[in-house]
Design a protein around this nucleic acid. Sequence first.
DNA 1: ATGTGC
Length: 376
Amino acid sequence: METEPNDRATVRVIATPKTWIESEAVAQLERTAALPGMRLAVGLPDLHAGKGHPIGAAFLSQGVIHPRLVGNDIGCGMGLWVTDLPARKLKLDAWTKRLGDLDGPWDGDREAWLADHGAAPCPFDSALGTIGGGNHFAELQAVERVDDAAALAALGLDRKALVLLVHSGSRGLGESILQDYLDGDAAGLPEDGPAAADYLRRHDAALHWAEANRALIAHRFLGPLRAAGTRVLDVNHNTLTRHDGPGAPGWLHRKGATPATEGPVVIPGSRGDMSYLVEPVNAGPDSAWSLAHGAGRKWTRRDARGKLGKTRARDLTRTALGSRVICEDRALMFEEAPQAYKAVDSVVGALEAAGLVRVIAVLRPVITYKTRRGAP
DNA sequence: ATGTGC
């Protein structure tokens, strides 16, 4: 699907007839493509409607930047760790109990952790090492299927070892940065002005903080399991980066869009679905150098609560794939139910059909930690 | 998404 709503930006949606995409999401994509300076707008197969602007999309602009397109969770992304826990030693009940409380402040030396991970202290450091809400999680996974054994080995992964996937971001920091640019930026910030430089500097700091955050979440998750982990990859999907390669030079805004330019990435399904470890191929303007960042919502949070009225929160703690979900916030449990998300194979399938990924391996969820806090 | 909005 390709249109040019304002004779300026090219708009594309990467999907097959089987991909679930709401018309409102496409309408948001087209409206966003009409913003000043916009040259290219690409909806990935996980495209869904957001608050004004769609999620699962990448936008290339020239001359101006649009901080609101990156959203409040600047630096949100996926980190993957390989652990020394053999899959055959998995003890679902015991481990689910043994996992500590990741919601409270970490009792370690935050400043040292940040320094060791190339990040600077900020006013939101009490949240360092916490997962946050929404679709964020930390999930232990087993290797379900291997399609490319050589690529798996090259990443340092072993099919017999469990892995840990962490999805989180910059917590209150990104939000506080965005707030400073929401007033009067409808036209975007001129790329050579002081506001853009200021935003980009703070944006980069949030990226580093988010990366350090994911590393601490992994550390806190694995500690009680007496396991060690080695980071395999860590990729942000809410970013603004300068793009100077072939295709139009400009500013690439990613909102729930994973870079196709930084090596292998994980495209997670819902908490009751598989995740895909994939190798990006053919990165270019057709995909805005990006991939889907997950399955993408099928139902709004509000609809999910309504449609799952007969389901009990308790039933959602065990998934069809046999995994456990730790989520003691009842409302969040319904909002994040697997049924509320697109089937991940339809999303990855659309990327494969478009010639944008090669599957390395499929990962099966084992234990997902979302929160041990929240409304009963 | 958010040390979350009234």
